[in-house]
Amino acid sequence: MADFALLHRPALADAKSGSFGAPSTVKRITLAALPEGHVLHVLAARGSGDLQGLIPRIGDGTPHAARPYGPGQWFVIGDAPLSSAEIFGKTPILDGKASISDQGHGRVRIGINGAAVETVLAKGTAVDLALSNFPVGHSAMTLIGHISALLSRTGKESFELLVLRGFAESLWDELIQMSLEFGVDAHTGK
């Protein structure tokens, strides 16, 4: 029981919002602060084998909810906030093969899309973002400039970034900067 109520303030509530850069309409980039629903960190137990089929079952059923980024490591994300009881209620599904840690307080999601999205993100990461190498549903933990983020492809021209809350606004500002040549509309949801 907490001694005082914690206020939830969206990490990007006061970030830059509006249209920036070139007036182009063809390759325009859209940035969106996504709902701070749930972010679950899932770690496999030693020697638990292949869990790729199991982990999506603790997700909310939407595509790309379970995002693998290394051996036995996933983030499972969704738009709905979950109570600790609801999160704890998911542990029987994993049958001791993996454990869940709530990271909803620690990481937030940014959506980025547009025809030039690969070019924009390639300014920050060395990961090969070509659709043939980085198909829809693929995820990679990487550095965007100096900021660590989980990059996930959610569509041909759309990605999501999962970033530590305290770095979210810096990354947001950098993504705007990286998108200026194509023009960018940044929506913080305010």
């Binding site: 290394g70 060395a126 990961v127 090969d128 990679a140 933990m141 990487t142 550095l143």
Partner: peptide, 16 residues
């Protein structure tokens, strides 16, 4: 400069 991580593919040394 580039390390080919067996899990992630080639990445710059700054990630390590």
């Amino acid at each position: 400069s580039l390390i080919a991580c067996p899990h992630c593919g080639p990445r710059p040394k700054e990630e390590f």
